[in-house]
Design a protein around this nucleic acid. Structure first.
Lengths: 147, 147
DNA sequence: CTGCGTGCAAATGGTTTGCACTACG
DNA sequence: CGTAGTGCAAACCATTTGCACGCAG
């Protein structure tokens, strides 16, 4: 994912291209483990020391509204962000607070068929996300980070 | 759900029985629309004016730890609580911020079978919750509440 | 140029904490 | 009685906001 592509994403949504927005969007893509605002700020400041906390939150909000990123929240955590926009679910580790993506087309297809035939009265479904709670048994695979 | 039953629930977990805990647990059961701490406090104060905010949070935490209630969180909201402890999912209305329970044994059975045969490498599943996002089309059914 | 975006610092607000007092078991 | 629970108020901290300045289009 290079600068040009990021620039395009912003432009495609009619958002002004600024170094701050570039840096924030890139950070979330690079830090692909559902970083918090804090983690993002820390990452960006290493080579962009002056970025303001308030700006980061404002940009995160703008990016989320324009569906360039998504917010991710658990029962016991601050807000996190992700730039993976395809249809996927999340594994939540109750011990480490780690979140990983879970992709499963077979399951998605089943769910879609299931709810097409068995509609929920009075409710129009937009999307369905599985929150798979449990524990990582193989912490070697851990790339990171949150504790 | 009467006082005696509530008392029993607390005692069953080895928690001391106090009027505050009784009132809070009862409030969450009565306000069965996933109330926030604020809503709970407001409800209780009507006939128990002196209960302290800090106490409510401490009790909520204690009840959640002892699995007498559960925390419910969305991407854009403060913490909410529920006393329904059976295996169910949630409908999230993106417009009204309303949350409703969704129960479906057929689906639960399918999911259990599905993940029994197709395990996730390196992850031990404890439970699976569907977060069904969409919009209530029949707002007449609304019992409440959050806006 | 002109207004949207940024930096900064103060404000907000939900939640937590420390401590002296109360009351459950 | 002894200790866990409560009330109160202050602290916390993630996030939001207001405003003057700067830069993208």
């Amino acid at each position: 994912m290079n600068k040009a592509e990021i620039r395009e994403k912003l432009a495609g949504k009619g958002l002004k291209i600024t170094p701050q927005r570039m840096a924030i969007l890139e950070a979330i893509m690079v830090l692909h483990n559902h970083p918090t605002a804090d983690i993002i700020i820390e990452y960006i400041r290493s080579n962009y020391p002056n970025i303001a906390t308030g700006t980061v939150y404002k940009v995160l909000e703008a990016l989320a509204e324009n569906e360039l990123i998504r917010k991710v929240k658990t029962d016991r955590d601050v807000m996190r962000y992700e730039a993976e926009l395809d249809d996927h679910h999340h594994l939540y580790c109750t011990e480490s607070n780690r979140i990983e993506d879970y992709r499963d087309d077979e399951l998605n297809n089943y769910l879609e068929k299931y709810f097409r035939k068995k509609a929920i009265p009075g409710f129009a479904i937009k999307d369905i996300k599985l929150q798979i709670n449990g524990r990582f048994t193989d912490e070697k695979k851990s790339k990171t980070i949150f504790k």
